[in-house]
């Protein structure tokens, strides 16, 4: 018996789901549900809710295109600012920070789509919302689960957070981690959460620059330090503990820091899994996202570890994943295992 495979673009199916007859809508939704179950669910929910305008927006985008909006927090600590500076439809804003944030959100979306065919943070076309000028002289950037906030910096410790694409990649990856592994933000799972954000943040930068693993600087936050900070960046995945004067990130378990501060030292001990990724990526050569990055990503999307995972579980999961993807005893599996051994995790 001959079987036929009909390949219909998701955009066309979505158009049918939106505008077709009742029968066409049912067929389109059923087809979408096979490989775009979340998106189809959104369409169904939207149809049920009757918000056709929102659905039309979602349909118009199509997978592979970000849906970005950058708001102006106007120096307030307002996580629901409504003043829009830039959208997909509009022209570049007369605000450099807004344009940088817009571009960084797009570069991060592009990396995840091009490399992993991941459609935004939730893999279901979540709109990417950013707020610039968050707070007064605010020395931070963060993802709050719905939006990314960018402070302007105080001009002393930091000069702003929109210019560093790895910072934006880092923050949006917290959303990806939340949507996949759900790692608890405390102690070792918290440090893994941090490290995954650094790993993918660095790869977003490397992807934009077209760099191989050995060409990359493996720095996090280069270019945002103010005059009080003596150094080149906030973290070094290549040489943890050397990014700035006072950097005391460990690169192996012998330097593991037990502390109550910072949710149990999540930004310190992340240096250990950061360095393991660096070692694996450089040992494997080529572009970091092709092998090491793919292994890490598959551990995330396949939820190979639980929310409470520590370094050992994550190391075992990446080693097992490398063997699963590339073969038992493969160069990839060996390189990943060796990286965790060198950092004294395994």
């Amino acid at each position: 018996m001959r079987s036929y495979h009909f390949i219909v673009p998701p955009q066309l199916l979505e158009q049918r789901a939106l505008r077709g007859s009742a029968e066409e809508r049912e067929i389109a939704l059923a087809t979408l549900s096979i490989d775009h179950s979340i998106r189809a669910g959104r369409i169904q929910n939207t149809l049920l809710a009757g918000s056709a305008q929102r659905l039309q927006l979602a349909v118009r985008r199509g997978a592979g295109r970000p849906d970005r909006t950058v708001f102006d927090a106007k120096h307030r600590l307002d996580t629901h600012a409504t003043s829009v500076l830039r959208t997909e439809e509009g022209q570049p804003a007369g605000d450099a920070a807004a344009n940088q944030a817009f571009d960084g959100l797009g570069a991060t979306y592009g990396f995840y789509w091009d490399v992993f065919r991941r459609d935004s943070i939730d893999n279901a076309a979540l709109p990417l919302l950013g707020e610039v000028h968050f707070g007064e002289r605010y020395d931070n950037a963060f993802w709050d689960g719905e939006r990314m906030m960018f402070g302007d910096g105080d001009g002393q410790l930091f000069t702003g957070f929109t210019s560093a694409i790895d910072v934006i990649g880092h923050e949006l990856t917290h959303g990806v981690t939340e949507a996949t592994l759900g790692l608890r933000y405390l102690g070792q799972p918290g440090a893994l959460n941090e490290s995954i954000s650094d790993v993918f943040g660095s790869m977003v930068k490397q992807y934009q620059l077209g760099q191989t693993a050995d060409q990359a600087d493996w720095l996090i936050g280069a270019g945002i330090l103010g005059p009080v900070m003596q150094g080149q960046a906030l973290r070094s995945m290549k040489a943890p503990g050397t990014a700035y004067e006072g950097d005391n990130q460990p690169g192996s378990m012998s330097g593991y820091v037990s502390t109550a501060s910072d949710n149990g030292g999540v930004h310190l001990n992340s240096g250990i899994p950061n360095h393991a990724f660096y070692l694996a990526a450089v040992a494997l050569g080529g572009r970091a996202w092709e092998k090491a990055g793919r292994i890490w990503y598959e551990v995330m999307v396949r939820r190979a570890v639980g929310p409470q995972a520590g370094f050992v579980q994550f190391a075992q999961a990446t080693t097992t994943m490398a063997a699963s993807l590339f073969g038992l005893g493969s160069a990839e599996a060996n390189a990943v295992q060796e990286a965790w051994r060198e950092t004294q995790v395994l």
Partner: peptide
Amino acid sequence: PAAGQPDRFS
């Protein structure tokens, strides 16, 4: 130490 939100101050 308590579990928190990523990259927020405490």
